[in-house]
Amino acid sequence: MTTSIISVYIKRDSEWYEYKVPITGETTVLGVLDYIYEEIDSSLAFYKSCRSGRCKGCWIVVNDKLVLSCQFPAVDSMRLSPLTNRAIIRDLVVDFRAVVSDPRRIKHEQD
């Protein structure tokens, strides 16, 4: 299997940070976040639990689309940001109980 380096942009505290992540074969967005936490920057905050799409805890916004990070394949130049309708705890972790607006209508973020 071939390894390629992808660019990942993560919105942390309203600023975008770029990370270079090597991926081999197929990887999920969560796999990329794990790699960044383990190998590049251990201060990155994100949430995961079941890793199989059941717990619905790892919702994040990838390229303006609402996805479960454990289910969504990683792509080059992807932009990751926290949910916009929940209060942010830190980085990509949001307080699921603190609803900011209708959860079904995730608005696009202009930056």
């Binding site: 074969g25 197929e26 990887t27 999920t28 969560l30 796999g31 794990d34 890793r51 199989s52 799409g53 454990c70 289910q71």
Partner: peptide
């Protein structure tokens, strides 16, 4: 492995 690298079923 369902969702590489860590999804196990």
């Amino acid at each position: 492995v369902t969702n590489p690298p860590t999804g196990i079923t």
